[in-house]
């Protein structure tokens, strides 16, 4: 199947979206195609299995764990979202399926269902809060947090990644936003619109 994938390039729904000029206090970028799986598994079974496809499932609800290229986030008592590089899709699926053979579970490929974006910057949280009702305070939603929530009228999964240095080298919050494919232009437009005033402040 791998060689077949190389026949066609994945066309992302945001490929044609023009990026607004990047304001100083915020950066919004779309992510390349990735491999994603919904894993449904009883909490007890997850504990027994420990890690799947190299990712630990032993996480509190609404937290994620990540290594250099993959992440697993626990979105509910029996639900995980696994994300990895597009090229790892087959191996992630095979590894997980092997580990879970004989255990009641669902492992569903949603690589194409979701679209990812990243937002970072000093103003990142208030930009998200333009449409997201979550408390994004450092204590309430620290790095390592991830949950399904809303952004405007779209459902998203929001991850607080590790802080990153901005242009001046100051550590600033860094978020990943996942939404369903058909909502991606809306979500991107919503964030870009909310970010506009932080560009204005610089002028």
């Amino acid at each position: 199947m791998l060689e077949n994938r190389s026949i066609m390039r994945r066309e992302g729904i945001l490929d044609q979206v023009a990026m607004p000029a990047e304001p100083s206090s915020v950066a919004l970028r779309t992510l390349p195609p990735e491999a994603r799986f919904v894993l449904r598994l009883g909490a007890g079974d997850a504990t027994r299995n420990g890690s799947i496809a190299g990712l630990s499932l032993a996480l509190p609800i609404n937290r994620f764990g990540a290594d250099a290229s993959r992440l697993a986030t626990r979105l509910g008592p029996d639900e995980w979202l696994l994300i990895g590089p597009d090229a790892d899709a087959e191996t992630m699926h095979a590894d997980a399926a092997r580990a879970l053979a004989g255990t009641h579970h669902a492992l569903v490929d949603i690589s194409h269902r979701n679209v990812g974006m990243e937002l970072s910057g000093r103003a990142a949280a208030v930009i998200l809060n333009a449409g997201c009702p979550l408390d994004l305070g450092d204590r309430q939603f620290p790095p390592g947090s991830a949950t399904r929530t809303l952004l405007g009228k779209a459902e998203v999964v929001l991850f607080r990644l590790a802080d990153v240095p901005d242009r001046l080298g100051v550590a600033v919050p860094h978020y990943r936003i996942e939404c369903w494919r058909s909502f991606a232009r809306y979500v991107h437009g919503y964030l870009a619109g909310a970010a506009a005033e932080y560009a204005a402040v610089r002028n």
């Binding site: 066309e11 729904i13 044609q16 333009a130 449409g131 405007g152 009228k153 779209a154 494919r181 058909s182 909502f183 232009r185 809306y186 979500v187 437009g189 919503y190 619109g193 909310a194």
Partner: peptide, 18 residues
């Protein structure tokens, strides 16, 4: 608020929309 014009509602489009 921002809920007007293109952002009034999410306009969901299919992969074949374009």
């Amino acid at each position: 608020g921002p809920n007007r014009g293109d952002l009034f509602d999410p306009a969901r489009v299919t992969p074949i929309h374009d």
